[in-house]
Design a protein around this nucleic acid. Structure first.
Length: 423
RNA sequence: AGAGAGUUGGGUGAGUGGCUUAAACCAGCAGUUUGCUAAACUGUCGUACGUGUUAAAGCGUACCGGGGGUUCGAAUCCCCCACUCUCUGCCA
């Protein structure tokens, strides 16, 4: 969440940024934040002063008791009840202000980077670049949901039988393709200097709040209610939360982690057109990269991550484009997001396969993720993450783009991982 | 899952109601000294919010796993929860 100090010290910039996101009543809400914070501080001063008085009296009583002056002690004791009553009232007022402030801050999204374009929806995203040639397929081309049946490599009906819609079963060469992609992505990340982690795929409530899935987005996560745990929608949650309540040394930065996990999303309300086949699933596999960065370095890191993801797509020989998301299409917690989309040549559609974001201090503030700078003071670090990559849509475009008379040709870079070159 | 024992600063660890404003040691940092990758000595060494200030120092409050309670006063007593260890049970 945003820092109150940021809102106070850069009011115009924050206001302008939130308007770029079409955040309703931005000015009213921001002024309300400052008002509540002012009340909070004033209450704290009163409370602390009374508490200090009370502490002094208690020490006096202690001293008198020691000297055996019991009567005097009793006399002073009687004075305390009124102070205690006042402290109690102020304490309640204070926590109410604090809670009100927190709840209000939860409703305010991150301030977009200056380079983020205005806009309302995906229509307004800015195409940064396009790379690769869109393949020309024969007339009898098939979409991937037909190809998987033809070659018997992914079975949706079987998934329905054992779990439900959106939980496919990968079989034979389909399963081996999944495994090859995961290994390829992890190996590439290791070469690029990432430290691999295998985090839990169930997380507690604190973790959900830390990265911003909670509150509000409970509906998007599967929940193990008996144990109050959530199935992760992305490895971002457990990996970033490894650094919750941590104070790093400046020389520890940047931290670069990579992890493979399955991801689970309820996708409530998002079923409709364009969700056939692998386009949208409840369970899918993803390799995620996470950076913890010095604030001065985070946008360099974001560009590096973008180039890294693009490099993977180039190695897989997939045509892609990079979008800079507009204010209206960006995630709640992000300051700047690049989406990478691959072209799926039989569907004749661009499919999002990666989203790379800089959250600046928005997550770090909730996570209390800090580092000690040169001046020995703690300050919030910047967090970033990106998919590198999400599997299903990569598989969809590999299958569609590479279909030939003799089967589906696998990208060269995967052949050593696969042990075969055609499906 | 059951029974018992625990959770104190970066680490080890003392602390059974007011001499704790959390001891001591180690590590870290700064310095002094001795001719050398070392030792000794001295000092310093948590976090947050607030106050103060050009900035700081300083000052106030809170924090001893988390939350609540008793009390003039709680690391210490009581209740709930989480986690760790030991034993028993179950188990890949």
């Amino acid at each position: 969440m945003l820092l109150v100090n940021t809102i106070r010290d850069n009011f115009e910039a924050v206001l302008h940024g939130l308007q770029k996101r079409n955040f309703a009543n931005a000015e009213t809400v921001l002024l309300q934040v400052l008002e509540i914070d002012k009340n909070r501080k004033e209450t704290q001063v009163q409370r602390d002063n009374l508490q200090a008085d009370s502490n002094t009296i208690s020490r006096q009583i202690g001293a008198l008791m020691k000297e055996g002056k019991k009567e005097e002690a009793e006399k002073i004791k009687s004075k305390t009840s009124e102070i205690k009553e006042q402290i109690k009232t102020l304490e309640t007022t204070y926590s109410n202000f604090e809670e009100e402030l927190k709840q209000l801050l939860f409703t305010i999204p991150n301030v977009p980077h200056v380079s983020v374009p205005k806009g309302k929806s995906a229509e307004d995203n800015e195409i940064v670049l396009e790379h690769g040639k869109i393949p020309v397929l024969p007339e009898n081309k098939l979409p991937h949901w037909e190809l998987i049946k033809k070659h018997d490599i992914i079975d949706f009906d079987l998934g329905v039988k054992i779990a439900g819609a959106g939980f496919p079963v990968y079989k034979g060469k389909g399963a081996r393709l999944q495994r090859a992609l995961i290994n390829f992505f992890l190996d590439e990340a290791l070469k690029a200097g990432y430290i691999e982690v295998q985090p839990p795929i169930l997380v507690n409530e604190d973790s959900g709040y830390g990265t911003g899935q909670l509150p509000d987005k409970e509906g998007q996560m599967y929940e193990a209610t008996v144990d109050k745990l959530f199935l992760i929608p992305t490895a971002e949650v457990p990996i970033t939360n490894m650094y919750r309540d941590v104070i790093l040394e400046e020389q520890d930065l940047p931290i670069k982690n990579v992890g493979y996990t399955p991801c689970f999303r309820r996708e409530a309300g998002s079923w409709g057109a364009h969700v056939r086949g692998l386009n949208r699933l409840h369970q899918f596999d993803k390799v995620e990269i996470v950076h913890i960065s010095h604030p001065d370095q985070s946008y360099t890191a974001l560009e590096d991550m973008s180039k890294y993801v693009q490099n993977l797509l180039q190695k897989l020989e997939l045509p892609y484009r990079v979008l800079r998301l507009c204010g209206g299409d960006m995630g709640f917690t992000s300051a700047l997001t690049y989406d990478m989309e691959v072209y799926s040549a039989a569907q004749e559609r661009w499919l999002e396969v990666s989203s790379v974001s800089n959250f600046e201090t928005y997550q770090a503030n909730r996570l209390k993720l800090r580092f000690r700078g040169e001046d020995k003071k703690t300050q919030l670090a910047h967090t970033l993450n990106g998919s590198a990559l999400a599997l299903p849509r990569i598989v969809a475009s590999i299958l569609e783009n590479n279909q030939t008379e003799n089967g589906i040709k696998m990208p060269n870079v995967l052949v050593p991982y696969l042990g075969f070159d055609f499906i």
